[in-house]
Design a protein around this nucleic acid. Structure first.
Lengths: 214, 214
DNA sequence: GTGCTTGGATAGTGCTCTTATCCAAGAAGG
DNA sequence: CCTTCTTGGATAAGAGCACTATCCAAGCAC
């Protein structure tokens, strides 16, 4: 398959594909000679993955490259690869530890993790980007005068834990190996838009159930 | 309070505040004379809300303006205002109805809504941005060879529905009125980062529980 | 051989958020 | 009163991102 066909089958312009090649998001095609390269189904698949991450997952190009780097890193164990890819996802700006709201949010989140018995989260606390995002967001609420405490967060955390269990159960239906790790990462990235959409849809549903269209 | 103090107390530069004023994200201060304006606590609060939407919620400035327009629109009933604000949130690109994956995803989502008995979602189907996002995301999975059907989506939808119930219960603890609608919108925007962070944290927890650090 | 396609390189576009600079009019403090 | 700071308003400048366009010599296909 040549570049033009790859473009036609994926719906991505040749200029953009060239851009992705340049940025290292796609591996170069098999070079037939100085001016011709051949692409296969794997390229098409990878290109669709990249597009999904960018358009649906809203990942910046640099993050996509980073995530794919972990996907392709054969030297690591699969759970490490998954973890590395997840940690490469976009983050919230560094929390400013001098801020009183940040410190208070920190304590609330620590209390939450403690209450839930999330032992792993406890030791990863300051390292995990997810943990940091949570602190920053809780702090943002707090600055506006709404206090999210461990108390209010706990039921949400419980539901999210069950969601995570579903995620991993789903993953285990696939055979272990390269496809599984790719699926896991894809899931981590594209599950979020799914969850967000379901959440909003459920909010709409529940709102009209309670209040109608008044 | 003058501009410099507003800047100091919010941590936002005066240049940026001027920009927000220009863009209509902040109402102008009370003009004391040709060269002095006075800002109050309400401005500070609004500024923090804007920052939270932009930095934590990652909303583009134009969306923030649109959402705030709905928040401030006194002429509408509160549930309409909330709905309008929610529908103004960032969307996924328009689905291309000629695409086979989009059509298949459409059917799966319709089956899901049907199975769950979400009557309201059913009639809002083609209108709701949340519905459209869901279709686009499911289609993206499908293009990569992973089929999400109503079957697999249902347990997630169930959990998200319970999340939405929590959201509305939380909202009802506040007295009705302007603050309530602002909180609801804030919640809709900032809850998502909270959920996302909790979800990732739960994934990390569950992954290490199952597979350790191998 | 004529026209189309290739990879490679480079520059430019359009958008967004933010910062900087300049201005004349006025306030604040000594 | 005089210096310094601040105001709104306007405009421009800049940085980052995802593309897009153009040009190139080399080569394949009809």
């Amino acid at each position: 398959m040549r570049l033009a066909e790859l473009s036609r089958r994926s719906g991505v312009s040749t200029a953009t594909i060239k851009y992705y090649l340049r940025e290292g998001l796609l591996p170069p095609g098999r070079q037939l000679n100085a001016t011709t390269a051949d692409y296969d189904e794997e390229h098409l698949r990878r290109l669709r993955l990249v597009r999904a991450m960018i358009q649906v997952g809203r990942l910046p190009v640099a993050k996509v490259r980073e995530v794919l780097g972990h996907v392709d890193d054969e030297s690591l164990g699969s759970s490490i690869r998954l973890g590395a890819a997840l940690w490469a996802l976009p983050q919230v700006p560094e929390p400013d530890e001098d801020d009183a709201c940040i410190r208070a949010a920190h304590e609330e989140v620590a209390a939450l993790v403690d209450r839930l018995g999330w032992e792993n989260a406890k030791c990863l606390a300051t390292l995990s980007p997810a943990y940091r995002s949570l602190v920053v967001t809780v702090a943002a609420f707090r600055r506006l005068g709404y206090d999210w405490g461990a108390e209010q967060l706990a039921p949400y955390a419980e539901l999210m834990h069950r969601t995570a269990v579903l995620d991993l159960d789903n993953m285990e239906t696939l055979p272990p190996g390269a496809e599984r790790i790719e699926f896991a990462i894809l899931g981590a990235i594209l599950n979020e838009p799914v969850l967000r959409a379901l959440h909003r849809l459920a909010q709409e549903e529940e709102t009209t159930r309670r209040y109608g269209f008044e």
